[in-house]
Simulated scan of single mutants.
Amino acid sequence: MSRMTGKYRTLTQLAGVVVLMGSLAWASVPLYDLFCRVTGFGGVTARGTGSDEILDQTIKIRFDASISRGMPWEFKPVEREMEIRIGETGLAFYEAHNPTDHPIAGQASYNVAPYAAGGYFTKVDCFCFTEQVLQPGETVLMPVSFYVDPAILEDAEGKYVHTITLGYTFYEIDLPEEAQAALRLSDSPTDIN
């Protein structure tokens, strides 16, 4: 009987380990995202409303764009770089084009390089905060407004940053319910009786 109890105990412990590992795997992405947003680790930017302090010192901002494999959009920055004063709110545009004959929804992920600048690069408004739906042949300009927090100059690594690169990657997502419903309506035959 003790031999069977030992097997059940081992089996129960093994099942517990599997459940624990599955739970950790499931929670790892949201927890890592939260960690990056709080610390700026991995080049994740902050969100804000604007800086109260604008310095005379400038910093160069470069803009990069890419699309994930299989995403049929064309996507690029309108302006490749700009120079702004630290604390000053900048405004940049990215252009997206849907060359297909059907609507496509996309979501942008972003990063900032170097990583030391991630926590100080603050987005005020960004197209990456919401999903985007482009109709067939549609081209749109998508704005991002931002500033570099003056506190970057007090950071041990950040004070040596003279150029920041803001990069976006667009990937395809499922069409929202409203867009799917509109597509079904436009594809349905009309009754002329």
Rank of each mutant, 00 (worst) to 15 (best):
E131M: 15
Y115N: 08
H162Q: 12
A179F: 13
A151D: 01
D33N: 11
K7S: 12
S66L: 11
I61D: 00
M82Y: 06
D187G: 02
A105E: 09
G48V: 04
Y168D: 03
G90R: 15
M142A: 09
Q107E: 11
L34F: 07
E172K: 15
F63T: 04
G158D: 00
C128K: 13
D52C: 00
Y171K: 13
G118H: 03
T58L: 15
A92W: 06
G70K: 07
F41T: 08
M142N: 10
W73T: 04
S109K: 15
G118I: 02
M142V: 08
T12F: 02
L91R: 10
D101Y: 13
T39M: 05
I104W: 06
A113T: 10
L14N: 08
D149Q: 02
L134H: 01
N98M: 03
L20S: 10
C36T: 08
K7T: 09
Q135L: 13
R69K: 15
G50N: 02
P99K: 02
V144Y: 03
I104M: 11
Y120G: 01
I67C: 14
R9P: 06
L153R: 02
F129A: 11
V19G: 12
I86Q: 01
G137I: 14
L185I: 10
I61R: 09
V140E: 04
D174H: 15
E88D: 10
I84M: 05
N111Q: 08
Q180F: 14
E177Y: 06
A113K: 11
E53T: 03
T139A: 01
L24S: 00
P99N: 12
L24M: 07
T165K: 00
G87M: 03
G6D: 13
G40Q: 05
R9L: 12
T10F: 04
L34G: 15
Y160P: 02
V29H: 10
R85N: 03
G22Y: 05
R184N: 05
D64E: 07
A108D: 08
K123V: 08
P143Y: 03
A117N: 09
R47P: 04
G90K: 07
C126W: 01
I67S: 13
W73N: 04
D187V: 01
G70T: 13
L91T: 11
E172P: 11
A105V: 10
E74Y: 03
L141I: 03
D174I: 12
R37C: 07
R69Y: 00
T45I: 06
A27S: 04
G50L: 05
W73E: 04
P99Y: 11
R184M: 08
F63C: 12
F170A: 09
I59Y: 04
V44F: 01
C36L: 03
G119N: 05
V38E: 05
L91I: 14
Q180T: 06
V78T: 03
R37V: 05
S2M: 07
L153W: 02
L20V: 14
S23V: 01
D155R: 04
A156K: 05
M82K: 15
Y32M: 05
A182M: 06
D149R: 07
W26D: 08
D64I: 13
D155Y: 04
A179S: 14
A25L: 14
G119F: 01
E172W: 15
V161S: 06
T5H: 12
L55H: 00
G118C: 04
